[in-house]
Design a protein around this nucleic acid. Structure first.
Length: 385
DNA sequence: AAATCGGGGTG
DNA sequence: CACCCAGATTT
């Protein structure tokens, strides 16, 4: 139990260990508030390795709060493309505007003020206040929940908000004690570093490398593998859909998703609910007023989100613009249809440079001559772009 | 309190 | 395949 454990004991071994084992990370080289903020938002539910490249590109492109506040949404989404949880970057933009208007462009150093900013919750407010400003407030993330529940051998369900609040309180007491040796930014980062590199979530923790190996209650009692306790997540629902690569000689059709919901505001390949056969696809294409020349079925694909699984059937449809055999009335009707479906024809270069397209369509990206997801980012790293 | 919101690494 | 990750917001 966390209440039966003297948390003062963990401070010095942890901070000493961190001094020799902190990873070198881009946002640690210059922990100015703006860099801490951006990195913490990117790191939400996202691994350090995935964030590194995005962080460097983001701060180069948008070096300060003002630049972030003035950036347009399409560019923000493009900078975030592949990172996921796209509301994070919209919230960054909204918060930057808040900071410009209410805080004269300066990121607040107070925990309660930070909490008022869009996209900043308990964890991130604590991280910014402690790492960038040295304030003694906790930053409890998944690593900290795991590490503390193990060292104190606490079997409370860490999915419950009440358990998280209680852990924050206990850590706040330690950090704000009278003659504490806690260095807030070091202490919080060290807890997370220990969780990420030693007291790991997958597989066996590396207890022989742990600065707490002689005081860890879970290790003493041999219950490390049963901690932390987490209620199981609900299983995913499955959605079947048909994805279309509609193209002529030079361009391919894309579609802007709705402003709310899954992948809000991103561009996608046109798709239809359910599995459709060749004939159904061809009649859909004709409804749009295009003349299909050839249709080729593609390999089935699957994409897994946290709470949904897409099972996709794909087709490449080559089309040509209808000639002047169309009556003026028909031409008008078709134009209306396309507008209603919000299809945009772009060439591959534009799709790659300007439009944020989620990794869910990576399996079919090759047919539009672009790359998506991790492949896209690795490719950019190679070419130094 | 439960659902929503991405994508990739790992055993 | 399941689980998890430097979580926040909405319902």
């Amino acid at each position: 139990m966390i209440d039966d454990f003297n948390l003062e004991l963990i401070v010095q071994p942890l901070q000493d260990w961190f001094a020799g084992h902190a990873r070198v990370l881009p946002w640690r080289e210059d922990p100015r508030p703006y860099y801490v903020w951006i990195s913490e938002i990117m790191l939400q539910q996202t691994r350090v390795e995935a964030v590194k490249g995005y962080f460097e590109r983001f701060i180069t492109e948008l070096p300060d709060v003002k630049a972030l506040a003035e950036c347009r949404e399409d560019k923000l989404l493009k900078l975030w493309e592949g990172l996921g949880y796209y509301n994070r970057v919209r919230n960054l933009n909204a918060a930057a505007i808040q900071i410009m208007e209410a805080y004269d462009g300066r990121i607040p150093d107070d925990y309660q003020e930070l909490l008022k900013l869009k996209g900043i919750g308990h964890y991130t407010a604590g991280a910014i206040a402690s790492i960038a400003y040295g304030k003694p407030v906790p930053a409890v993330d998944g690593n900290v929940l795991r590490v503390i529940s193990r060292v104190t051998c606490d079997d409370s369900d860490i999915m419950k908000q009440s358990v998280r609040n209680h852990m924050e309180e206990k850590l706040a007491e330690v950090m704000q004690a009278e003659h504490t040796t806690v260095i807030p930014g070091v202490f919080n980062q060290a807890l997370m570093e220990l969780g990420a590199t030693v007291c790991v979530p997958n597989g066996m923790p590396h207890c022989m490398e742990c600065p707490w190996q002689n005081l860890c209650e879970a290790k003493k009692r041999g219950c490390i593998e049963s901690l932390p306790v987490k209620k199981k997540a609900k299983s995913r629902r499955i959605e079947e859909m048909t994805v279309l690569v509609i193209r002529d000689d030079e361009k391919v059709a894309i579609h802007k998703r709705s402003a709310s919901g899954l992948l809000a505001g991103l561009y996608e390949l046109p798709n239809l609910p359910g599995y459709m056969d060749t004939e159904a696809v061809l009649s859909y294409i004709r409804e749009l007023g295009y003349a299909p020349i050839r249709i080729t079925p593609l390999a089935d694909a699957k994409h897994i989100f946290s709470h949904v699984e897409w099972r996709m059937k794909g087709y490449v449809v080559s089309i040509e613009e209808p000639g002047n055999e169309l009556s003026a009335e028909d031409a008008r009707y078709y134009k209306e249809q396309r507008k209603k479906k919000k299809l945009v024809f772009v060439d591959a270069e534009d799709a790659k440079e300007r439009y944020a397209i989620p990794a869910a369509f990576a399996a079919y990206a090759g047919y539009m001559n672009i790359r998506l997801g991790k492949e896209a980012f690795d490719k950019k790293e190679e070419t130094g772009a």
